[in-house]
Amino acid sequence: MDGSGIQYVVGLDAGGTRTRARLAEAATGRTVGEGLGGPGNALSVPAEALVRHLAEALREAGAGALPVAAVVGGFAGGGPGGGREKARAALTGALAQLGAAPGRVEVRGDAEVAFAAGPGAPADGLVLIAGTGAAGARVRERRMVAAVDGDGWLLGDAGSGFWLGREALRAVLRALDGRGPETALAEPVGALCGGLAKERIVGYAYGAHPVRLAELSPLVVRAAEAGDAVAAGLLDRAADELAGTVRALRPVAGEPLVVTGGLLGPGGPLLGRLAERVGELGLRPSPVRDGVGGAVALARLPVS
């Protein structure tokens, strides 16, 4: 507590692109401060960088200036059997840098905090994330009990931003060598790669970490909005993949389905397409901006 007797909690949503932190009053949930840091994927971000990114977000939110009773961090790659211990060590280290000593520090998977961000902070149902990567999960009593995809850029993340970026490059390569139809994606891809030649495009794809291809997903969205059939087809396929992830979780008609990430959050370019597909399953997606509100909600819960 500070001099006013108010208790504070912190929620974090550490994703593949950035880390968000929120400092809030424990009793009311009123936001006191927010902060941003670098990528927080517990599997792919080096340990020292992960500590630094978490500390950036926590410091900007004000976590070092007020006494914090509880911290809940949701991490991409932070599920059981994944990078949970690495995430816990990084979060503890970041809090120590700020001189914060909360009574409770809890690490969750990003799916758990995203689900808790849904309307009414639900305890049971489904969550689907589609941003840089993509994953679905079933949550029961606020714990993930089943997961689908989230297998990373090499093995999965079907329908994600990375998936769309990769498919955009493949579509342009096929248009260039005659294996596929012409597409308006060629012009922006050529500008990005420094020329519309196979060597340029392949060099761009292999010249940095593959996850960078997620940055191309907005090109697909813009081309589809302008009427390009190839780009629209990629968005349809991405939505099909994500709907398939939901189906694999054996949904029950009417149960909560919380969706988030750059592609499915409020106003997301795949939200309408997904809604059509899961509507056939008796589901209605509830989009949330991110999981930081859910992390705060979990931090405010009494210890069971």
Rank of each mutant, 00 (worst) to 15 (best):
A87K: 08
A214E: 00
G152E: 09
P119V: 00
L126I: 04
G165E: 00
A89S: 07
A101V: 11
S160T: 00
G165P: 03
L173N: 01
D124S: 14
D110P: 07
A208C: 10
A89C: 08
G136Q: 03
A168G: 10
T92A: 15
E141T: 07
I129H: 03
E199S: 06
R140T: 11
A175F: 02
L164Y: 05
R143C: 13
P119I: 10
A130C: 04
L155R: 15
A184D: 10
A96I: 08
L169N: 08
D110I: 03
A208I: 04
R166K: 13
A146C: 13
L185H: 10
A214Y: 02
G207E: 04
M144F: 12
G136P: 13
A89M: 10
R166C: 11
V211S: 15
A130F: 02
Y206W: 12
W163L: 11
G165T: 02
S160P: 05
V211F: 15
R138E: 06
G109F: 00
S160E: 02
A197T: 09
R108V: 01
L192K: 15
V107K: 03
A89Y: 03
V107W: 04
A146T: 15
A214T: 07
G194D: 05
A123T: 11
G93K: 13
I129S: 01
L185S: 08
G194K: 04
G136T: 07
L155Q: 15
A135Y: 12
G103P: 01
V145R: 02
V127Y: 14
L192A: 15
V172Y: 12
R200S: 03
Y204A: 02
S160D: 09
V202I: 14
R212Y: 02
A146K: 14
A90R: 13
P102S: 02
Q97D: 15
A116I: 06
A101P: 09
P188R: 08
A117I: 07
A208S: 14
V105F: 08
L173P: 11
D149V: 09
G207D: 05
G150E: 09
M144T: 15
L95G: 05
R142W: 14
G156W: 11
E106Y: 06
T132V: 11
